[in-house]
Amino acid sequence: MHESERTSVLVVDDDPDVVRTYQRYLEAEYDVAVAFDGEEALDVLESTDADVAFLDRATPDRSGEALLGRIGERGHDCRVAMVTAVDPDFDVLEAGFDDYVTKPASRADLRSTVERLVALDEYARNVRQYHSLVSKRAALGPEETDAESERSDRFSELDARIEREREFGVEPDRLLEDAAFVTAIRAIDDDARSEADG
């Protein structure tokens, strides 16, 4: 996510009415950028970091899927939801999308999708931060590597508890939902990629 507090959302659809409607639904809470075709969407992403993008499945010059591929190739760390008129007859997750919304999308549909995807992205970031904390502690704490058992057991028990009780922002039960599970892993993959590029 970029520096500012507000989440930024990109809406891509070739129908100006649809774009305007979604913009109206979203702009009270989010920074909204719009694009009417795939080229424009890529241009927008060059200059602004979107946290979440809504891609119309049937944007004329590029289908939503092709545009998604380009977004991935360029290393944009952006969660992507497909907007589609009919329920998709393929595996949306496998196609690289994090979620989908069926037209006509209501204000509530769009917002809950943004919130859900942002929460999973943040979860991935929190876990990475947690990794750096644990790494630091491991570098400092010789007692953790102590082979004599009772004491180091208590340490690892404590660690396990800290781990379990720590707030990562997403309850473990949420990960039972396949889309959330895959999106969290994809966010980890993407984070690493955009960091390597930057």
């Binding site: 991935a124 876990v127 990475r128 947690y130 990794h131 750096s132 644990v134 790494s135 473990p172 039960d173 990960l175 039972l176 599970f181 969290a184 892993i185 980890i188 993959d189 984070d191 690493a192």
Partner: peptide, 20 residues
Amino acid sequence: VDRERAFAFFHVLTRRASAA
């Protein structure tokens, strides 16, 4: 896979397995 990414991956995988 670099360690941070691997760590995060196993974190998510084990949490799901545990929740299930």
